[in-house]
Structure formats: structure tokens, C-alpha cells
Design a protein around this nucleic acid. Structure first.
Lengths: 229, 229
DNA sequence: GACGCTTATCGTCAGCATGACGAAAAAGGG
DNA sequence: CCCTTTTTCGTCATGCTGACGATAAGCGTC
């Protein structure tokens, strides 16, 4: 880090969120409708300014809570990347630190103070404000990759879930079909991926499925493989 | 992204670099000795302020060139993560966008204008200014992980290299021993990882080795596996 | 030049994980 | 009771990996 003898000028910093969830076999992202200029009326990623004495991660957690009402440590939140190309915001120099959140499906989102509304949008979405289409694409790509070598697919599931529900998460995020038998063997055979609850739940049809909760593993060795075609 | 009705206050943004190289079977990082307060005389990661009309990536490229004299597209450069905890810089609110660079070994580094000197330091390094120890740790961990599923180890090698040189890169970064025969089979058997040049080079002892250059592959499927113990 | 030493490269083989797919178990409905 | 559906367990061929033997191709020495 250099000195302040030639400071680069001051910058505004925002924390914006790519909030993904899986519902009805669709990958959905949380969007807000902008209530002010620029891009008034356009859809954008939720987010806002980092407060003067606020950590970046804390700002992301706060924005997530403001938009979803989430307070408990549910799902998953991680930093995605930062975007600071000059001109990306017509109001001036803005650097955005983007975060990626993976959540189980929740009740309807709450519109923030500066938004006219919020909604879950199925992918692919249409036009977005600023460079948010690029940020969203990066987030989706990160999520797809992380399902391979981490157990993060459980972040899309409720606390207790069936193997079939978990498989449908993979199939939805990857847009691929997985063999239920091999998937079952792989998931239950990977130590720490999921842990049996001991109870079963009856589906609408067919044999009732065992319930599982997420295990302590942080990485999958060997990874879950995405189908090649 | 929200509006400017309650801006979070302005922030200074720096682009700092974790520049890694492999030399003499050591993983080394480029450090500069700070010539000004705070942390005057302490070692720190190279970097500096993002200019008012400069892209983040461009700032990282510029800083890399200023510190190493690099101009050609050699090695690898990618964004690592951003750090903005309040108080991490005693002068005020500073958000640092860290970049990770992987380079083949180069001549002695050049000291920047605001540094008393620059040097390659073998890992682990001692105390660093600011939270640079944390940034460095994140960068090293990213590099170690990327060697598994990407051909980025070639970024540590000169344009033409032998399989043994490439293996020594893996052994150094991972601090592990790899079987030369299995490594040779894996590297030459992965399409697009390396391409034979057609010539050989004589080492000091033993049979001369074929020369290779980096192939077009961006990902390794299946990945290179780190030894478990 | 034969020999020994070193390193690069090729082969072999057992073990494990995977993909494809059959089959049994466990429910509900006609 | 039979049929359908879904879950769960098995089987088998294949491919990748780890361990390690064997050969190739240089150099130095006697």
C-alpha cells in the first residue's frame, strides 16, 4: 500500500448482493425495482452504501437482513468480487463489493427504503441497472462451481431435507439431470456431507424418504462431478 | 445499489498485490519496505491508490509494472478479494482490492517511489504492515487451491519448461512430494495442459528432458489431486 | 568403450470412484 | 391384491489414481 501523497481521490463504496434461491425447479435471484434515478424503474441487485464505520461483511449482512428479514445464520454468504470500472455509475466513482448469498426459499421479500419493490426473478433475467448483469453472471458461475467441490447445495435447502430435494437443487443450478441412484450413493457415501436425522417424511407419492441435515464437511473430496455434455 | 441520499462517506481505494513466484524450491512473495508513516520501515505488500479515472484491474496492472518492470502478458493476474475493516489503516477509511499475481522468477524487483526497497521473501514471512499478513495468507491459499483444478502452475514457469520443473512448482507451492512418474503421466495425459515443443534440454545430470509450453486448457478435468497426508 | 550414476519416460497392476442400470423396499390408490 | 411411484440397495464395466518396476538417454570414470 502506498502513501497519501497522491491520493487517488475519494470513492463511494457499496455492498451489493447476488441472493440466489431454488424454488419450483427454478434458480431465482432477488431483485429490487429502483425508486430513484439513475435507472429509476429498472431492476437491480439489492445493496447499498457501506456505512462510515461499518465492515464490508457487516454491510452485506445488514443489506441482506433489510431485504429478506433474515437474522438467523441461515444459508450462506461470501464475498464475490469487486467492481470499480470508471463510468459504471453515472453519479460518480463507485466501487461495489459484491457478495453471494445462497438461501432456502423464503417468504416474499421486503422492499427496501429506496426501492419500489422486490421480487424473486427466474434466470435468465432481462436488463439490469448498472453492470449488475455482469455481477449476477459472476455470482451464478461461482455458485455453479462451488456446488462441485463444496457441500453448499445444502444452503439452498431447509434445515431438514431429503436426498431428492438436494438432488433437485443440483439439477436446477446446473440445469442437468442426475441419476437418482448414483447421486444417493455419492451423497450418503461422502463423510460429513449430510447426516441422517433418523426420521422419514411421506411424499405425495412413492416410498417415504429419510430426512437429513447438513454435515460438518466444508469440502467434498472427491468432488461432485457435473455431467460433461 | 442504493441512492446517494445517505452516502456512506467517501473512502480511499487501493490496489495491493500478492505477487508470488517459485525460486530455488521456495515459494516467495514480493514485499516492499515502507518509506513513510504509518508502518515506516515495515514490510508490506506492494500496491497503491487507484487513480481517479482508472479501472481496478488497470491499477493492479500498473502497480505490478511499477514494482517488477513487467510489461508483457507474462504469468497470471486475478482479483483476490477486498478488505475494508474500519481501522485497518490508521489514516482513515481505506478499502483495499487485493490482486493475486503468479510469475516466473524475474530479476531483482525495483523499489517504487514510496518504498525504500523491495525484495522477494520466502514464506512464511514475519510481521507485515496493516492486515497484509491476512491478505497474503488468503492469496497463498487461493494459489494452492487453484493449482488443483487449473493449469496455473505454468504461470510460475518460463515460456518453455520441463515436466520436472512443473512438478517442482507443485511440490513447492503445496509443500508436498509427488511421484515423478505419475505426475508425468497425469500432465501429459490431460488434454490442453501442456504442449510439446519438440526440443529437449540437457540438465546437469541424467537424461535430457523434453520441453513443453502451456496449453490452451483453462481447467483441469479431472483435477490434479493434492496428497492427503 | 564398458561401466556406473542420474534423471526422464514408459508399463504394469491393484484399488477406488464413477456411470449405467437392474431390482427390492415402502408407501398410496383403484 | 395389484399397480404405480419413489426411495434405496446391488451389480458390473470402465477410468483414474497410487505404488512401483523397467527401460531410455545422457554424463563421467576407469
Amino acid at each position: 500500500m502506498a502513501d497519501f501523497s497522491s491520493p487517488g481521490g475519494s470513492v463511494s463504496v457499496t455492498a451489493d448482493l447476488v441472493v440466489l434461491t431454488v424454488q419450483s425447479n427454478e434458480l431465482r435471484v432477488l431483485l429490487v425495482r429502483r425508486g430513484i434515478e439513475p435507472y429509476r424503474g429498472a431492476w437491480a441487485l439489492p445493496g447499498g452504501f457501506v456505512l462510515p464505520d461499518e465492515d464490508l461483511d457487516a454491510a452485506a449482512v445488514r443489506e441482506l437482513r433489510e431485504e429478506t428479514g433474515l437474522t438467523a445464520p441461515v444459508g450462506h454468504l461470501e464475498q464475490l468480487a469487486s467492481y470499480g470500472t470508471p463510468g459504471r455509475d453515472p453519479r460518480g466513482r463507485v466501487v461495489t463489493v459484491a457478495y453471494l448469498a445462497l438461501l432456502p426459499h423464503l417468504p416474499a421479500p421486503v422492499a427496501g427504503s429506496d426501492a419500489e419493490g422486490a421480487a424473486w426473478a427466474a434466470l435468465p433475467v432481462g436488463e439490469l441497472a448498472f453492470d449488475h448483469a455482469r455481477i449476477l453472471a459472476d455470482g451464478v458461475e461461482r455458485a455453479r462451481a462451488k456446488l462441485e467441490y463444496s457441500p453448499l447445495a445444502t444452503a439452498f435447502c431447509p434445515p431438514e431435507f431429503t436426498i431428492t430435494e438436494l438432488r433437485e437443487v443440483y439439477e436446477t443450478v446446473w440445469d442437468a439431470r442426475l441419476d437418482p441412484r448414483n447421486f444417493h450413493r455419492k451423497v450418503t457415501g461422502t463423510p460429513g456431507f449430510v447426516e441422517p436425522v433418523g426420521r422419514s417424511i411421506a411424499a405425495e407419492r412413492g416410498r417415504p424418504a429419510q430426512l437429513f441435515r447438513r454435515g460438518p464437511a466444508r469440502l467434498l473430496h472427491p468432488p461432485m462431478l457435473r455431467p460433461t455434455p
